[in-house]
């Protein structure tokens, strides 16, 4: 019989109180580790464990749902073999910024909540003040930004030199 969905418990039985049958705290990657991804995971774990007041003021740890939404964005946006894995910067409200910086160009995504993201970039075309857009579910625009951003890979730059 095919495995039912995780949230589909049919076929099981209950006693009055059943014991937890397997540890729930951490789940390993289901796919082979990819260089860069382990670092992203470690960073997100680190930010989720920040102590209250970590910034010297009233900073709180990264909010659980924001961490997962940030991970979802990175998963969708990044070719995980890219040399430009992002930096992840905590905000004092439990929010995070996902940032790419290279050769004077930057892309920054401020994840304020799931489906509430402000994206900003600067480059030669848009100038120093940069360009800002608000995003909810569709991150295609950022995919394009990243493609333009990574167009100048070290290999390409070396070839052009």
């Amino acid at each position: 019989m095919a495995s039912p969905s995780a949230f589909s418990p049919n076929g099981t039985t209950a006693t009055n109180v059943a014991k937890l049958t397997q540890p729930a705290r951490r789940v390993n990657l289901s796919d082979p580790p990819i260089i860069g991804w382990e670092a992203i995971k470690s960073r997100l774990e680190e930010l989720s464990k920040l102590e209250a007041g970590w910034d010297g003021y009233r900073g709180v740890p990264m909010r659980f749902e924001i961490g997962y939404f940030a991970a979802e964005i990175i998963k969708n946006l990044c070719d995980l073999s890219t040399p430009y894995m992002p930096q992840i910067i905590p905000g004092s409200n439990g929010d995070v910024q996902i940032e790419w910086h290279h050769s004077g160009k930057s892309i920054e995504l401020h994840v304020k909540a799931p489906y509430d993201v402000t994206a900003w970039r600067n480059n030669d075309a848009v100038g120093e003040d940069g360009e800002e857009i608000n995003l909810t579910t569709d991150f295609t625009a950022i995919s394009k930004w990243l493609n333009e951003f990574t167009g100048a890979t070290p290999a390409n730059e070396a070839a052009a030199a």
């Binding site: 418990p9 006693t15 109180v17 390993n28 990657l29 997962y68 995980l80 991150f139």
Partner: peptide, 28 residues
């Protein structure tokens, strides 16, 4: 009646250019 089960990880429907999908959970 009550049973204890492992938690389901958060999930979000997002859209972007197709990329290879990987499964992950950074923390329970």
């Amino acid at each position: 009646l009550v049973q204890e089960q492992p938690a389901l990880p958060p999930s979000f429907e997002t859209f972007g250019l197709p990329r290879p999908q990987i499964g992950f959970d950074f923390i329970g």
